[in-house]
């Protein structure tokens, strides 16, 4: 991919992010931070590439270190988000699965 295609993806994703994040209800801003934390650890992709590559031992160990750090974040971030979201309950549980508003 050339630079311009990548830049296009980036700019469009910024717009998507802008509108999606404004639609997040303020009550869920803390889970939002926890989950953005978890997904920004997609940087683990770079860490895995570095850890798997042969040829440069220093780069490999840096990569393995980054894999550990990013994994803490991925597992911890998603788990703590799940834990928080499980606590949000509606009044009296009327049984109608429809939520929202």
């Amino acid at each position: 991919m050339d630079f311009i295609s990548i830049l296009s993806i980036f700019v469009l994703a910024c717009f998507v992010g802008y509108y999606v994040v404004w639609s997040v209800t303020p009550a869920l801003h803390t889970p939002l931070m926890a989950v953005t934390n978890a997904i920004s650890s997609v940087i683990v992709v770079g860490a895995l590439i570095a850890a798997a590559a042969a040829g440069a031992p220093a780069a490999k160990w840096l990569g393995l270190g980054a894999v550990v750090l990013a994994s803490i974040n991925i597992f911890g971030g998603f788990a703590v988000t799940e834990r928080m979201l499980a606590m949000y309950k509606k009044k009296d549980k009327p049984g109608t699965g429809k939520g929202g508003k």
Binding site: N37, A38, I49, A59, G77
Partner: peptide, 25 residues
Amino acid sequence: VAAFHSLVGLAAVLVGLAAWLNPGA
């Protein structure tokens, strides 16, 4: 959350340095 942010930051630094040392990969 602050602690988790620091981990993402450090992971980015490590990946960047790894890319610098082994750009071929």
